[in-house]
Computed example of a mutant assay.
Amino acid sequence: MIDPSIATPPVNRALPLEWPCRLGRVLVVDDDREARDAVLAELADHQCHAVGSSGRDVQHHLQRSQFSLVILDVRAGRIDGFGVLRRIRAHSDVPVILTTRQQQDEVDRILGLELGADEFSRDPLNPRELLARAHAILRRQEVGRRQSAAVTARGGYRFNGWELRRCTRVLTNPAGEVVELTKTEYALLVAFLEAPRRPLSRAHLIRTTKAHEDVQDRSIDVQVLRLRRKIEADRSGSRLIRTERGIGYILDVPVEILF
Rank of each mutant, 00 (worst) to 15 (best):
residue 4 P to G: 10
residue 4 P to T: 13
residue 7 A to L: 12
residue 9 P to L: 14
residue 10 P to Y: 12
residue 20 P to V: 10
residue 22 R to M: 11
residue 25 R to E: 15
residue 26 V to S: 13
residue 30 D to T: 06
residue 31 D to I: 05
residue 33 R to M: 11
residue 33 R to K: 12
residue 34 E to L: 13
residue 41 A to S: 10
residue 41 A to Q: 09
residue 47 Q to N: 12
residue 49 H to S: 12
residue 54 S to H: 07
residue 54 S to K: 02
residue 56 R to C: 06
residue 58 V to G: 07
residue 64 R to A: 07
residue 65 S to G: 00
residue 65 S to N: 08
residue 69 L to G: 04
residue 69 L to D: 05
residue 70 V to Q: 06
residue 73 D to N: 14
residue 74 V to E: 01
residue 75 R to W: 09
residue 77 G to L: 05
residue 78 R to Q: 15
residue 82 F to K: 07
residue 83 G to T: 08
residue 88 I to Q: 09
residue 93 D to T: 11
residue 94 V to L: 11
residue 96 V to C: 11
residue 96 V to N: 12
residue 98 L to Y: 04
residue 99 T to K: 11
residue 99 T to A: 13
residue 100 T to W: 07
residue 102 Q to E: 15
residue 105 D to S: 13
residue 108 D to A: 11
residue 108 D to M: 10
residue 109 R to P: 07
residue 110 I to K: 11
residue 111 L to I: 07
residue 111 L to M: 09
residue 111 L to A: 07
residue 114 E to R: 13
residue 116 G to Q: 04
residue 121 S to Q: 13
residue 123 D to C: 03
residue 124 P to F: 02
residue 124 P to N: 04
residue 125 L to V: 01
residue 125 L to F: 03
residue 126 N to K: 09
residue 128 R to P: 02
residue 130 L to C: 07
residue 131 L to C: 05
residue 132 A to H: 07
residue 133 R to G: 03
residue 137 I to E: 00
residue 148 S to H: 10
residue 150 A to Y: 03
residue 150 A to I: 03
residue 152 T to Q: 15
residue 158 R to E: 14
residue 159 F to L: 02
residue 160 N to D: 15
residue 161 G to E: 04
residue 164 L to I: 01
residue 166 R to D: 02
residue 166 R to G: 01
residue 168 T to H: 03
residue 169 R to N: 08
residue 173 N to P: 04
residue 174 P to H: 05
residue 174 P to S: 01
residue 177 E to V: 12
residue 178 V to G: 01
residue 178 V to M: 11
residue 182 T to V: 08
residue 186 Y to W: 07
residue 193 L to F: 08
residue 195 A to S: 14
residue 198 R to E: 15
residue 198 R to L: 12
residue 206 I to G: 05
residue 210 K to A: 15
residue 210 K to S: 15
residue 213 E to V: 15
residue 215 V to R: 03
residue 218 R to Q: 10
residue 226 R to I: 05
residue 229 R to C: 06
residue 236 S to I: 11
residue 236 S to K: 12
residue 239 R to S: 07
residue 239 R to N: 06
residue 242 R to P: 00
residue 246 G to I: 01
residue 246 G to H: 01
residue 247 I to F: 00
residue 248 G to H: 00
residue 248 G to A: 01
residue 251 L to M: 01
residue 256 E to L: 01
residue 259 F to A: 14
residue 259 F to S: 15
